[in-house]
Write a protein that binds this DNA or RNA. Structure first.
Lengths: 121, 121
DNA sequence: TTTATATTTAACCTGTAGGTTAATTAACCT
DNA sequence: AGGTTAATTAACCTACAGGTTAAATATAAA
């Protein structure tokens, strides 16, 4: 695939993959743990592929422990997508005090050179 | 496509479509206006299709004015995606005061029945 | 009524996403 | 060594995404 952001959004554009992320947000899990909820509707291999898509997008990491492959969520990749969305917040945010609160946090973290948003590193 | 959220993310998973959204965030534009920046790399028909994808996902609206089709951005669809992401903010947000500010706004808008997040309607 | 401009529709092509089953690899357990 | 469990690889299939060119439609303008 082309750019990182497209890859991230594409990875999120599947309910199975979002469910895997949801599961991982509660903590580390093996491939077979992650697959379990879906085995009525698809094969283990299918889930393995979904996991690979998430891994390629950087949304999760996979390590090795004997014959298991413990997976963990990796928020970094999501941040770029979230940052992209902030740009459009004004178009979907009708609660102005919440928007104000957000803007204050932005102002308190002024842009450094070559950085988007007020985020560090 | 399956669910609304998948459709939204899929629509965002293309740089041309994100560029169209960026253009529309500066104001209304016709199909040919939107297509102009891309005509060196793809046909008008291709852009038309991208616009249709955005429209189907609810990210933009299209009206009629003589032979023109003025398009406008529609933030509502983006909000669901943004809401979904908020769920994971804790995984990519390292600035705790900014997170605090966000959490305060959530607390100030307690959940109503059948609603996700603190958002109204 | 003809012509020009804006956009869509139709028919097509190619690559890839998402699924399958069967076979393979890797590590552990007797 | 042989068997079990965990996960991946390979080969394949089908649908659809994203592009093309050519033709059709709508509206305005001469």
């Amino acid at each position: 695939m082309q750019d990182h952001l497209s890859q991230t959004f594409a990875a999120l554009a599947d309910p199975t993959r979002r469910a895997v992320l949801a599961q991982l947000s509660k903590g580390e899990a093996n491939v077979s743990d992650l697959a379990r909820p879906f085995l009525k509707t698809m094969s283990l291999v299918a889930v393995t592929k979904h996991i690979k898509v998430l891994e390629s997008a950087g949304l999760i990491t996979k390590s090795r422990q004997a014959q298991w492959r413990p997976c963990n969520i990796n928020g970094e990749a999501l941040r770029d997508a979230a940052d992209w969305m902030e740009q459009y917040r004004v178009f979907f945010e009708e609660s102005f005090d919440r928007l104000d609160a957000y803007l204050k946090t932005v102002k308190s973290k002024p842009k450094a050179k070559g950085e988007k948003n007020g985020r560090k590193k």
